[in-house]
Simulated assay, not measured.
Amino acid sequence: MIRLTTLHHLHGILFVFLFLSGIALYTAPLRTWFNEIQFPLVSFHIASALVYLLLVLLQLKRLYVYTKRKPPKKTFNLMLNLSAFFLWSTTGAVMYFQAALPQMLTNPSVWIHGMLTFVYFPWAVFHSLTHAFHIQVPWPVWWKSRKEPPAHVKENIPGRRDFIKLTALGTAFLFAGGLVKWFQPVLTAAGDETRMRGYFRIYNVTNDYPRYTEREWELTIDGLVSSPVTISRQELRALPETAVVTDFYCVTGWSVRNVEMRGVLVRDVLSNFSITPEGTSVTAYSGDGLYYDTFTVSQLVDEDAMLVFSLNDDELIHAQGYPCRLFHPEMYGYKSVKWLERLEFTEERQQGYWQVNGDYDLNGYL
């Protein structure tokens, strides 16, 4: 059986792993650096959380006994840790299974999961430093020992039911804050016909992104096709426009409702420029020189995949993939290659960027 001291140290180590990997996922330059060295950051973060969860679940009975014989200070610290971990685990699970859950639950969970880290971190630092350097904090005697507290304190000490009520109330306030942030685009854009829910987070795998002008950008379609071609943006914009209103999902857990994408269908591009695919797969390359993803020809031609030029009646901005991004309405956002500059048709399908550098599904269906 693991000693409680060892369990405490394991808790600290796993918390450091979770905190550092979470900060790296939150911070674009760090996330990009881990991508470049091909470190599976998302998998590491989830694996650390699962080990932590297993460790806590296996020791719940011992932890309960521990709270019965320890002073309030230690009990408070333990309950604070368990409450925070409960919220992290719950919101993390919601983010992982977000495609099967309502967006009014998933978007607040993303916000809470990140915000809780910054709220909890100061306490974790304080707790670690006072223990590591044996700093004596002038807590009341009754708080750091099992002596009876004064009468005026004892009558106000919350019991188990009070703790459950406070935890439930705190959770409700956190979700309320997440919902307010989620509804913010709606509250500040009453005239927006699309009634967008949620907001986009900008992710890329390099520390910068290409900045094309409309005249500079061209799309190359080559490989196993009847006639390779290079097409300008003006030529593509001259084709019949298609608009799709759908929900946009990111595999990291957030989503945006009722997004209007405008552009041209891939099959219309092929037919209008007399391009006949002779391969069975397609690799889509980003202009950032690093990112790419792969599809079957059927996924792009038969399933309403499109080249997008505008989002919610506005031209794409550079960070969103201007001048053109690929979009498939039934796939996660990582399949939506930004700054698209080449479609290469091949016979054999390759692994995409996130299959080589992570563990994302090759097809990426919701």
Rank of each mutant, 00 (worst) to 15 (best):
T32C: 11
L311E: 06
F85D: 07
P40Y: 07
Q136T: 11
V225C: 02
I157T: 05
V16G: 01
N204P: 00
V125A: 03
A176D: 00
Y212K: 01
E315D: 09
I2T: 12
F17L: 11
E347V: 01
L58A: 15
L63N: 12
M261V: 00
E193Y: 10
V42Q: 03
L326F: 02
V110D: 13
G177D: 05
M95A: 07
S226V: 00
Y249M: 05
F173K: 05
E218C: 06
W123T: 06
E36R: 11
V56Y: 15
I164R: 13
W217T: 04
R197A: 04
V51Q: 12
Q59G: 00
S145K: 09
D192C: 06
E214L: 12
L265G: 00
V137M: 10
E148L: 08
L41M: 06
T5K: 14
T167Q: 14
L20V: 15
V186T: 12
V153L: 10
L78N: 06
S271R: 05
G358M: 04
T91L: 12
A132S: 06
Q59M: 13
P138W: 08
V205S: 06
K165S: 10
R257C: 00
T6W: 12
F295K: 08
I202E: 11
K165F: 15
G177P: 04
H152D: 11
A190W: 12
T167I: 15
Q299L: 11
G12F: 13
W139L: 04
